[in-house]
Design a protein around this nucleic acid. Structure first.
Lengths: 199, 199
DNA sequence: GTCTATAATATGATAGAC
DNA sequence: GTCTATCATATTATAGAC
């Protein structure tokens, strides 16, 4: 129902555009090339989108959608290491999801060129996760699960390696190189981190 | 001596080009804009560089120059935490160096679009540091300074936050926002990390 | 070494027939 | 909704005068 005949082309445009933006960035992707990849003429493309930027914004719509919700953090955090392991499982799934990976690539390319994207990255991507993890670590400290320290700093130290590993996975996958060695780093990170903070 | 009248313009071109590439990437920077920023015409620019790519490559020449040498690692690593603190001081200096920052921005923009840059990043930027740190951690384990584990994994866990903090500093500085809060993370990272690995 | 002039091509976007 | 045709502009790059 949501994809009728009229929006079929629109969906195809979004798909092709996303691949091109992920590979060559916004400036490196021309409307011509998008249309060509879809199999239509540029002019036909303008029946579905006002302009190039509108295509880009539609492609990027879900770029900061996150599986990490603050719901039940107060309760879940009491599980300690289990909570962290679960967080990392989600993070890993996102890292290896083909669609999320394309959006991640676009984000990384445009992050340093687009102020709005940069603001959203810091808010939705970084601060959101830091706030969630800070709250969790605070609970763990109060519950005597981990040694007391600055919860926000602890959150940073926990999150940073995940991002770095994700970036490396992304880089390797662009060139279709194996990522098996990196795959295990996520679980090892939880073990290593827990050993260093647990009481 | 190294900057005579003839290479003065060339130096100005490199400087202007670096700023533009750092702000708008390779595709977002036109030869016109570089020339305009220098104060000459595009055609004059071609007296100093064969083409746009040659300008870019010259700008990027020192992009992977690193202050971290493997020299004396075997000896220095025996200092334990002091070695790590010193490594981080160097890393922090690089992170806040204006010129290095511009090159870092260019690197991050092009990393996902340029295969050669990607390869060099993984080799010169990542593997180089991981190899150096792995060697150091191996020595520390042998010397009984830290608990035994996989030295390469330990190196990853130590390096990853530094990169993440550097990226954030870079993002904030683009918008001229304060980085004082981030500045202290480097030292706190050393303390936190050492506490978690020390015997 | 810089300028003006110019060329060839690519790009974002629109008008109007079908 | 797609096509052909067209446009204005931007782009990389070269030729030749000074």
């Amino acid at each position: 129902m949501s994809v009728n005949r009229s929006s079929k082309t629109k969906t195809a445009i979004i798909k092709s555009a996303m691949e091109l933006f992920a590979a060559h960035g916004y400036k490196g992707t021309s409307v011509r090339k998008i249309a060509s990849k879809v199999g239509i003429r540029e002019s036909a493309l303008y029946n579905h989108f006002k302009n190039k930027e509108a295509i880009f914004l539609t492609v990027c719509a879900d770029i900061f959608t996150t599986p990490f919700s603050k719901k039940n953090v107060q309760e879940d955090a009491k599980k300690g290491k289990k909570f962290l392991a679960n967080f990392v499982v989600q993070y890993k799934l996102v890292s290896f999801d083909a669609n999320k990976e394309r959006l991640f690539r676009i984000m990384m390319i445009e992050l340093l060129q687009d102020k709005t994207l940069r603001k959203n990255f810091l808010n939705e991507f970084h601060h959101h996760n830091i706030a969630l993890l800070s709250e969790a670590f605070f609970v763990m400290m109060q519950s005597g699960l981990i040694r007391s320290s600055d919860p926000m700093f602890t959150a940073n130290e926990f999150l940073a390696p995940l991002f770095y590993y994700r970036l490396q996975i992304t880089l390797l996958r662009i060139d279709a190189e194996p990522t098996t060695a990196l795959s295990t780093l996520f679980e090892k990170h939880v073990d290593f981190f827990w050993e260093s903070v647990a009481l």
